[in-house]
Amino acid sequence: PQECLLLEPGLNEIMANSLDYNERLWAWESWRSEVGKQLRPLYEEYVVLKNEMARANHYEDYGDYWRGDYEVNGVDGYDYSRGQLIEDVEHTFEEIKPLYEHLHAYVRAKLMNAYPSYISPIGCLPAHLLGDMWGRFWTNLYSLTVPFGQKPNIDVTDAMVDQAWDAQRIFKEAEKFFVSVGLPNMTQGFWENSMLTDPGNVQKAVCHPTAWDLGKGDFRILMCTKVTMDDFLTAHHEMGHIQYDMAYAAQPFLLRNGANEGFHEAVGEIMSLSAATPKHLKSIGLLSPDFQEDNETEINFLLKQALTIVGTLPFTYMLEKWRWMVFKGEIPKDQWMKKWWEMKREIVGVVEPVPHDETYCDPASLFHVSNDYSFIRYYTRTLYQFQFQEALCQAAKHEGPLHKCDISNSTEAGQKLFNMLRLGKSEPWTLALENVVGAKNMNVRPLLNYFEPLFTWLKDQNKNSFVGWSTDWSPYADQSIKVRISLKSALGDKAYEWNDNEMYLFRSSVAY
């Protein structure tokens, strides 16, 4: 590609939709070469300064400071330590791993069909083939991996386009969902002041979706909304933040926050679980009234959910574990990228498509890292959202599997949720969690119950496949010279610098 592309739109479109291996590689590498390399010296300084700040406030390091958001002291029976968070994340991840490994094996087999000769049947997945710029969410792999393609499509993007949905309609439908469970409408100022579409040439905007509580009843969302099912669900997520903000607005200023950061992320995700169900999509006209649910549509639905929800958990866990180790000084600065990709291979089963030396800073190419967000919130929120969903479905008197529950129109479920939201940070999160779900610790069981039918199906699908991955295989081993030459021509001086062995191999191949 010759034109100058922004991340959004532009590069993200390539990473969402392109099936051209080399075009995807160009976009993936260009973003890291342009952005990651510029941020490397800044990120090194950032780590030093943030650690100084944390230690001045009596924390061991900046990662310890972040984990302090979960700490509860002096509340008998509800205490929770920063170290306990690490333990809980690690042991819940071990419980999730078998499901993830089977999802990984299934996706690898489907990617082998889409990119023959580029995928190893026992290796890691190349990082640039996973549906977005970071491989964070695998949602866009659904069209390549759908188990029963002859069934009606449960990705309702086409239906939204056919019905001329726009950003306003998407957010109005999200608002209807919250109102149906007894939560309030958005304010008039929300509709007047939010930026729900890309302003285009009028001004440059950071398009990463964010929710804003500017105080004095001024709530806004910034999002360059596209007419897709993914953005339909994202709208519910962002509006969930606003509902939380509005619910605790009466609290004293210092207590106007989520019980912990994971709670804030979980609220909209609960609504997304219901909004994505075929039952709900039928009720708002995005699935045909004669759409029939059966075992095959159930597996299609659960796989689509797993690509988004299960596929991202190792990504989140590994990223934050790397940062915690960096802040603690356990990874020397001259080994940041080496350790990043070692951990990516070992924990996530994902491999870099071309080698990256220590001039890169791949983590900082992600919005949340370069903008100083702690990231473990996206792991804890996933466990909380299924715990909350299970409890709210019980309040809504849902009968049947958890993945079929739609809590819309249940004011009982809405009241149970609101009673927790309005507390803000005035009560320990362990107590707030217990008030809703009857337990005071994160628990992976509801998530595993939700995906149980899919897990059973995946194990059957993978019975003749290798489950797990070898960390030795690299996608650039066989194609390295071709890849390096093409990237050198595209990126010039910003391309990865060849070492002596690679230059010798190149000259030998040319001479041959």
Rank of each mutant, 00 (worst) to 15 (best):
P252Q: 10
A250R: 05
D245K: 11
T187D: 01
G189A: 15
L233R: 07
T139H: 08
Y378T: 05
V206M: 04
H241T: 00
Q251W: 14
D245Q: 07
D230N: 10
R136F: 06
T139C: 04
H208Y: 09
R256Q: 03
F367L: 09
H241L: 04
N153V: 06
P252E: 01
N257S: 07
F375D: 02
R377A: 04
H208L: 07
F301T: 04
A250K: 12
S272P: 09
H208K: 10
H368D: 07
R256P: 05
N257I: 06
D213W: 13
H241A: 01
F219V: 14
A250W: 01
P252K: 12
T308H: 02
H208M: 05
S272H: 04
T187E: 00
F367M: 02
D213K: 12
G215M: 00
D245W: 13
F253H: 13
H208I: 02
D218R: 15
F367N: 03
F375I: 05
D218A: 15
Y373Q: 07
D230R: 04
N193H: 00
E261M: 01
Q188A: 05
N193Q: 00
T234N: 04
D213Y: 11
S272T: 10
T139N: 04
L214F: 00
V206Q: 08
W212V: 11
S272F: 06
R381V: 07
G189L: 14
Q251E: 11
R381P: 01
A250S: 05
Y373K: 01
R381K: 10
R256L: 08
D230S: 04
S374H: 01
T187C: 04
D245V: 01
T308L: 04
A249F: 14
P209A: 05
E261Q: 03
K304L: 05
N257M: 05
P209N: 08
Q305M: 01
N257C: 01
R256E: 08
G215S: 01
D230C: 03
H241F: 03
D230V: 03
Q251S: 11
V206Y: 07
S272I: 08
F367Y: 09
A250I: 01
H208N: 09
M246E: 09
Q251G: 10
I309P: 01
H237W: 07
D230E: 08
E261I: 10
N193I: 11
F137P: 03
R220C: 11
F137E: 05
D230G: 05
L214W: 13
K216Y: 15
D218P: 12
F367Q: 05
T308K: 05
P252R: 13
H264K: 10
M229Y: 06
F137K: 06
E269C: 06
R136N: 08
S374I: 06
T210M: 03
H241Q: 08
R377I: 01
G217W: 15
G217T: 15
R256A: 01
F219N: 11
P252Y: 10
P252N: 03
H241G: 01
D245P: 12
T308M: 05
E261S: 07
K216E: 15
W212L: 12
N153E: 07
D230K: 06
E261D: 07
P252S: 06
R377G: 06
R220S: 13
T308S: 04
E261H: 05
T308D: 07
H368R: 05
K216F: 15
H264D: 06
Q188C: 10
Q188I: 02
R136G: 07
G189F: 14
A249K: 14
Y378Q: 09
R220F: 11
L233M: 05
A250Y: 01
Q251M: 11
Y373M: 08
N257E: 03
F367R: 07
T187V: 03
P209E: 09
E269F: 08
D213V: 13
G215H: 07
N193S: 11
G189M: 14
N257K: 06
T234C: 06
H237M: 05
S374T: 09
H368G: 05
H241N: 07
F367P: 07
H368M: 03
A250G: 05
T210I: 10
G217R: 15
A250Q: 01
R220W: 14
Q251D: 12
K304I: 05
F219I: 13
Y373R: 02
P252L: 13
D218Q: 15
F137G: 06
R136E: 06
A250E: 08
E192K: 11
H208G: 10
L233S: 09
Q305R: 08
R136D: 02
Q188V: 06
A250L: 06
D213C: 10
Q305E: 04
G189C: 15
A250D: 02
M229L: 06
E269Y: 06
F219D: 13
T187F: 09
N140Y: 04
N153K: 08
T139F: 04
N140M: 05
G189D: 15
E265A: 06
F367S: 08
L214S: 14
H241E: 01
S272R: 08
N140D: 04
V206W: 08
D213T: 12
A249D: 11
F137L: 09
T234H: 08
T139W: 04
D218L: 15
E192V: 09
L214Y: 11
D213Q: 11
W212C: 13
D372G: 04
T234D: 02
N257T: 07
N193Y: 00
M246N: 12
P209T: 10
E192W: 12
H237P: 11
S374D: 02
M229I: 11
E269R: 07
H208W: 03
F137S: 08
N257P: 13
E261K: 10
D372C: 01
P209M: 12
S374N: 04
T187S: 01
L214D: 14
N140G: 03
R220I: 02
F219G: 14
T210N: 09
N193W: 00
G189N: 13
H208Q: 10
E265G: 08
E261L: 07
F375H: 07
L233I: 05
N140K: 04
E269I: 08
T234Y: 07
D245A: 02
H368F: 05
H241D: 03
F137Y: 07
G217S: 15
F219L: 12
L233V: 09
R256C: 02
E269S: 02
D372F: 01
L233T: 09
